[in-house]
Amino acid sequence: MLPMNASDQTPCGALFEIMKRSGGISHKELASLILSERPLSDGRSPMSRASDRTWVSRFVVHAPVGSVQARYFRDFGVAARRIMDRLHAQRRGALSFEQILDIVCGERGAAMVAALDACRQDVRLYQNALVRMRDGEGYTVGERAEAALVLFVAAGCSADVGYSVDYAMSYIRDVLGGQLGTPTSRPVRVACAGMDGALVDANRTLGVVRIIEGCISSDPYWVDPDSEGVEIGALVTGPDDIADVDGDVSARHARIWFDGAAGGCWLLQDLDSTNGTIVVSGDDGEPLRVASGETAQIHPGDELRLGATTVFILIEGSADMV
């Protein structure tokens, strides 16, 4: 069981604690696996200090977020593979690839999510990436475990979810030779219903609000009409993109932007998503399935359904909300 104060840990502290409690790797041993061999200004490398409990505790495990230097760590992919070998090949208590996946993606990995959330990182993006590594199509269980461990190590060492997801996706592409597929939607029966009543028209700023089980679950994500638009998807990392989605939403699922030509209108494009995009009219409740790669006009009051369970309502607000 993870400690009760897990939410007070830094991501790096969570990495060390989870590997110790669930993987049987001591702090000293984990330090030797992930710290860099490149010398620092004093001529000594971080790895040469792996046996120095005071230094590892002060400058790595319990160091405040933002003070841990990237040069302390070896390449995250290399570090993850070293940890994988240690977990999978140890003589006593060897862990299967399924067990490694469970440590990173399951309840025992919750301390990492709490630590990332505590330092204001996008934990939904992190969890979306883990869902793909656990459930997405196209890879063996060993490759999935490797990919998940790469993300886990990168997030723990950097405390930067956007960077870690980009790094992990590049690793999958460059080392594992492709990309993880979007998990298949499970059929869910949901009524299609629009939002009745006119909404305020103020400078054509569009808000995207997440709905879960009929309740508003997010603040509006505002789309600036003067911008290039935003993308919605499980692994989008742009500054204004929306990753607040369920696991069957594609990595880059849909794009919303304002077209100023011919009087102006809001448009949505399905970005060749796996599990589909539906726009439910706010006027009459009629659902329109947007074909893969196609574009449809959208309006405040419409409802967006991505995959089986991700629902957004579109609203309109004033320009100063962007």
Rank of each mutant, 00 (worst) to 15 (best):
K20Y: 05
R144P: 03
F59G: 00
R53W: 12
V209K: 10
T295I: 11
G156L: 07
P183E: 06
E228Q: 13
V280Q: 04
S57G: 15
R132Q: 11
I232N: 05
R58D: 13
H253G: 06
A193H: 07
A14K: 00
L116M: 06
G106A: 07
M47S: 15
I298P: 05
R108D: 14
M19E: 02
R86Q: 14
G247L: 03
R124H: 13
V113E: 06
A94M: 12
Q127I: 02
A308D: 08
L33K: 01
L235D: 04
S281Y: 05
A70K: 05
M133N: 03
G66R: 07
I172E: 06
E294D: 07
V113C: 01
C12S: 08
F59C: 11
L271A: 04
G43L: 05
D102L: 14
I256D: 02
D85E: 15
E17L: 02
D259E: 15
L306K: 00
E228C: 09
I25E: 03
R21S: 08
E286Q: 13
P11C: 04
I256Q: 08
T10C: 05
L95G: 06
F152N: 01
S41M: 00
L267F: 08
W55E: 06
Q127A: 06
D226V: 14
G197H: 07
W257Y: 15
A147D: 01
V104I: 15
L180W: 10
G285C: 10
S51A: 15
T184H: 11
A243S: 15
D246K: 06
F76C: 09
G214V: 13
R81L: 14
T274H: 02
E294Q: 10
D241Y: 11
D283I: 13
D160M: 04
G285W: 09
P183G: 08
S227H: 13
V236Q: 09
G233Q: 02
L30A: 12
A155K: 00
V161Y: 04
M169D: 09
H299N: 09
I216D: 06
L125R: 11
T205N: 09
